[in-house]
Design a binder for these strands. Sequence first.
DNA 1: CGCAGGGATTGATGTGTATCAATGTACGTC
DNA 2: GACGTACATTGATACACATCAATCCCTGCG
Lengths: 236, 236
Amino acid sequence: MTKLMAASSFAVPCANAAAQPGGFLSHLGPADLRQLLALGERVPYAAQDVLFTQTAPAGKCFSVVEGVVGIYRTECDNRRQIISFALPGDILEIATQGHHEVSAAAIGPAVVWEIPREKFAQFASHRPYVLNEIIALMAAEIAEAHDRMFSLGRRAAEEKLLVFLTYWRNRLVQLGRDVDPLPVPMSRRDIADYLGLTVETVCRTLAKLERRGAIEILPGRVRLLDTEFALASAFA
Amino acid sequence: MTKLMAASSFAVPCANAAAQPGGFLSHLGPADLRQLLALGERVPYAAQDVLFTQTAPAGKCFSVVEGVVGIYRTECDNRRQIISFALPGDILEIATQGHHEVSAAAIGPAVVWEIPREKFAQFASHRPYVLNEIIALMAAEIAEAHDRMFSLGRRAAEEKLLVFLTYWRNRLVQLGRDVDPLPVPMSRRDIADYLGLTVETVCRTLAKLERRGAIEILPGRVRLLDTEFALASAFA
DNA sequence: CGCAGGGATTGATGTGTATCAATGTACGTC
DNA sequence: GACGTACATTGATACACATCAATCCCTGCG
């Protein structure tokens, strides 16, 4: 298994970046894919490293290969709202013109595939079907943003946490990860900034859910026990 | 002035829908534009009328011609989060596949230009440059969604109101509207559902801002007096 | 003109979450 | 193995916003 993975990674470098299930350009042929990958480069990041910051010129687009990348917007007074956690296969800033309007930082060690914007534009310009892939990708991003707005504006802390945990589990399941003790690589502060809460409220609410038997808190992980029941009133 | 507007509306029916400044397909030539418009139809709606609802099949896309349309997501228990207020020139559900994941309703009397999805897809299929317009449109929508998430997650009620009012003024300015007493056609409930607050908090916060001399509340309107100062700490 | 109904406003009160503060815990470094 | 630092947790308290309730106001309608 491991050998197989290594072999295919060697044959098509950075295959993860583009061929993740449900990920970007999954419908591209191998020839296109190889050509596209050759235009970019693999860049490793350490935990907390910043990929790009809002207001900076958007010269490249990015695709997560390994690890988790936090996308966030900040205000001058240290307030931060995490927009999303990007996982392998996710594309960042693919249609951004001019300047970034968000920042991105590695949650833990991460590998990112980066391609200069003009090279990608050139690649796409004589492959019209790529544009449709981009549109589908952005449509999914917009739909997810709508979910987030509802959660941020209309859910209480406990429901925010439960929705987040089940969402996060589903994302990892789609990547074929083991989620029985669900890995939670981001800090409590990251979760708080993602949900529009404070660190303390996140801790307390998780503790409350644990006392109730809905979850079990482990170092760096959370075991989901009864979240479907706890969320019964939250889904239409 | 009025005569001129009427004349040009006659020459190119529904011109508003697509040729709004900054609106969709503003770069299309007149021939393309006329052909596209012929594929759809003008539909009038009364206040509160529903254009489409979430989970319904997304058979058409929409462009607001007159009035304001609220885009929102609801939960079974009456909770509602308004995603955005669509104004003339705005396009709705242009890339939605399958089912709507939001609902839309007219805030006041409105006119909407509607085109069957497959007809539009056919129109776009042999005009690759249209796809780039769509991508730019969606990129702007995503950027705005990021703003909204920050506001919903990280701003207090007063700041939410001030940011909303200045945003709304800017949007109307871009449409060439008179904004000195700023028209506010949506109800307090709509504003509350847009900002993630309750009706009462919206009323109270507006009253507080009025007492402070930042705004003046008029029937159906708000005069902005000192919002830039009041927002001094809110912008980076 | 009087009535009815829905939105807007204001008040009294409750509560969820933030804030402030302290302690606990894990991990990296010397 | 001791220390230091950052993160996590828990407690006490404050406050912003929600909730419940009443009144006001405007508009449409008989």
